[in-house]
Design a binder for these strands. Structure first.
Length: 302
DNA sequence: CATGCGTGGTA
DNA sequence: TTACCAAGCAT
């Protein structure tokens, strides 16, 4: 991420944040976890679900989840298997396990209340630099820089003048956002959310809608004539068809549906290649998503 | 620091 | 159709 010193605007931080916040005040999508009366737990659940997963897929799952487990204690009282089943096909089912674990930790270490402190949040299973700050900022109004992939792209373009953000570097990314962040806590909170929203809906990776951009006049990438990205490319994702990831997903689908141990023979019907099946099962067991029991494989009951 | 980890939408 | 991308995290 290029430094602010290379930019000509003497005070880009103030103008960018102000413009984003003006736009966000009218353009924010009415996402249910942004409602004024939602609990910190509701925000936490949304952030787990939103890790690498789009809003449109998360929303219905989040509604169901909050209806069934409205507090950390409610989820902690359920077996992990039920969390994994409710997670259904949101993807990365480890997150369901992590969320269940985090709920347990919140009950055990924090009396059932989501902690406000950044270090306490970071200590929760499945909570990393992004999620911890998102909870602190959006659930509690704390003034922290929140940096996700959208924000990284917005800053790379508007401030850095380049098309893409390059590989993540947490410390640098947080510094870059900090230098743009308004002093006022409420404005900082809005800017954190607004920068993400801008990246998700306008300053998108594929087809950015620069004509509709509220910070077009501040954008260094635009000023530079939209140069193509020439930095290091992200490693290409392996083909999903025929992959171990796909096999894991197929096995998990069987385990969720079964409500009883699934025999090896049944799994072989789903993943024909023995080697691929074995790697998938071993991996799932290692991750705690599956347990070897009498009669085959099952979801973890504790 | 690079990888592996699900699933589905989009160009 | 294929490839890219998505409110990241743990290892």
């Amino acid at each position: 991420m290029p430094t602010l010193a290379t930019h000509a605007d003497p005070a880009p931080s103030r103008s960018i944040a102000e413009a984003v916040n003006r736009w966000f005040a009218g353009a924010a999508r009415p996402l249910p976890w942004r409602a004024a009366d939602v609990s910190p737990w509701a925000v936490l659940v949304s952030e787990f679900m939103l890790q690498q997963t789009q809003v449109a897929r998360v929303q219905p799952r989040w509604e169901e989840w909050m209806r069934r487990w409205p507090t950390p204690a409610d989820l902690a009282a359920a077996p992990p298997s039920e969390a994994v089943r409710m997670w259904d096909r949101l993807g990365y089912p480890r997150r369901a396990l992590w969320l269940h674990r985090a709920a347990t930790e919140i009950v055990e270490r924090h009396g059932g209340a989501v902690p406000r402190d950044l270090d306490a949040l970071l200590a929760l299973q499945g909570v990393g630099p992004y999620t911890a700050r998102a909870i602190a900022a959006f659930a509690f109004g704390e003034r922290h820089p929140v940096v996700d992939t959208n924000t990284r792209r917005v800053i790379a373009r508007a401030v850095g003048g380049v098309a893409e953000a390059g590989p993540p570097a947490t410390a640098r990314d947080l510094d870059a956002m900090s230098s743009l962040l308004p002093d006022d806590a409420a404005a900082a909170r809005a800017f954190n959310a607004g920068a993400m929203e801008l990246g998700a809906t306008v300053c998108t990776a594929r087809s950015p809608r620069c004509d509709d951009c509220p910070i077009a006049t501040h954008c260094a990438w635009r000023a530079a004539g939209y140069p193509e990205y020439d930095g290091p490319r992200r490693a290409r994702q392996a083909r999903f068809e025929g992959s171990d990831r796909e096999a894991r997903g197929l096995v998990m689908r069987e385990l969720r549906a079964a409500h009883r141990p699934v025999a090896p023979r049944e799994l072989a019907d789903v993943v024909a290649e023995p080697g691929r099946l074995a790697r998938a099962v071993d991996g799932l067991v290692a991750d705690g998503l599956a347990v070897r029991v009498e009669g085959g494989l099952a979801l973890p009951e504790a």
